[in-house]
Amino acid sequence: MTLGDIQKLLDAEVIAGSENLGREISHAFAADLLSDVLAIARRGADGALLITGNMTPQVIYTADVVDLGAILFVRGKRPTEPMIELANQIQIPLLMTSYIMFETCGRLYHQGLKGCVEKAGDGAD
């Protein structure tokens, strides 16, 4: 699935990185807490889509630190200008949808997007 497919599926608005809509996304995970993002990413989340309602600039730094493929903001929350600037600088695509996280995960999973970790405890701890 490409970022462009994800955009269509969720009527998402592309906030940053519109030149990357062709990027392939095969895995995703959903988290509002940054520590949870990092805990999942430590098993490897290179190129994954992060689905979040966390609207702090730290979510962009986190994405950079663990090499995520894109961030999708849910619940109709719009990233601030400084966040967008940072995303452009770091070159991480940002999308936003007004769907809630439940609907977002449901649709993406249904379309075949895989999770980053199968079960708690899987992967190298």
Binding site: F102, C105, R107, Y109, C116, V117
Partner: peptide, 10 residues
């Protein structure tokens, strides 16, 4: 994890 659980609930 939340993503898979929600996907399956959905």
């Amino acid at each position: 994890p939340a993503f898979e659980l929600v996907g399956r609930l959905y």
